[in-house]
């Protein structure tokens, strides 16, 4: 018969549990504080930077919203309660087109995102929102373009040309659903010194386009007309 009490009595089990809750809670609170107060340069990226963005620091795209942390928390709660119209972000502002435009001026962009605000592009907006740069250039993928370039189908279903220069007409190509062929002759943003070929054999091979979109090879459309800034203003 042992007079020794069991090592883990009821009271000490509760004490250990409370101690562990306290330790975990404190660690959690410290981690949250570290995240809240840390600068964007210490963020953990969710993947490799896209082509051309390798030298950028996190804070050059992920900017802090205006105001102090407290003001932002106020604005978020106030908007949630219906006391104000505009909310805020707590830590980082969403990365919008304005941030992209700070470096990529793209004058003469024939598919500029703002064009798709026009009412008649409602279907295109619903299927693949072309108003946002990140729709096709989702970041942290280590590539140049994150779509295959067949989005032309959303707006260019009617391509019947009276004076079609191609041996196989645009109308035939679109009717056959060959939307992956568009980029073999057409530079989407028009940002390169490139003239569309008029013969099928002069078109860029699709495999070359794919490699370019993945960021493996340089532009098959020739040199860019507008060179992006190397750092945002």
């Amino acid at each position: 018969m042992s007079a020794l009490k069991p090592m883990t009595s009821g009271r000490s089990r509760v004490g250990v549990r409370r101690l562990s809750y306290g330790v975990m809670g404190s660690a959690g609170a410290l981690f949250v504080l570290w995240v809240l107060l840390s600068e964007p340069t210490r963020m953990i990226a969710k993947g490799p930077a896209n082509i051309g963005h390798e030298a950028l620091s996190c804070g050059e795209c992920h900017q802090s919203p205006p105001g102090t942390l407290r003001q932002r928390a106020q604005a978020i709660v106030g908007a949630w309660l219906g006391q104000r119209q505009h909310s805020s972000s707590l830590i980082y502002q969403p990365v919008s087109n304005a941030r992209c435009n700070a470096c990529h001026t793209r004058s003469g962009d024939v598919h500029a995102p703002h064009l798709f605000n026009e009412p008649r592009f409602a279907d295109a907006r619903a299927e693949a929102d072309p108003r946002r740069c990140v729709t096709c250039h989702a970041e942290h993928q280590g590539v140049r373009v994150t779509r295959d370039g067949s989005e032309c189908r959303h707006c260019h279903q009617d391509l019947k040309l009276r004076d079609d220069p191609l041996e196989r007409s645009h109308e035939e190509l679109t009717r056959a659903g060959e939307w992956l062929s568009c980029l073999t002759c057409h530079d989407y943003h028009g940002g390169h010194n490139f003239s569309s070929p008029e013969r099928a054999h002069e078109a860029i091979q699709r495999s070359v386009i794919d490699a370019y979109l993945r960021g493996v090879t340089p532009s098959p459309y020739g040199p860019p007309l507008n060179v992006a800034r190397q750092t945002p203003p």
Partner: peptide
């Protein structure tokens, strides 16, 4: 958030 709060952000 509310009682001792700083001036709110412009709305």
């Amino acid at each position: 958030l509310f009682v001792s709060a700083p001036p709110p952000l412009p709305d």
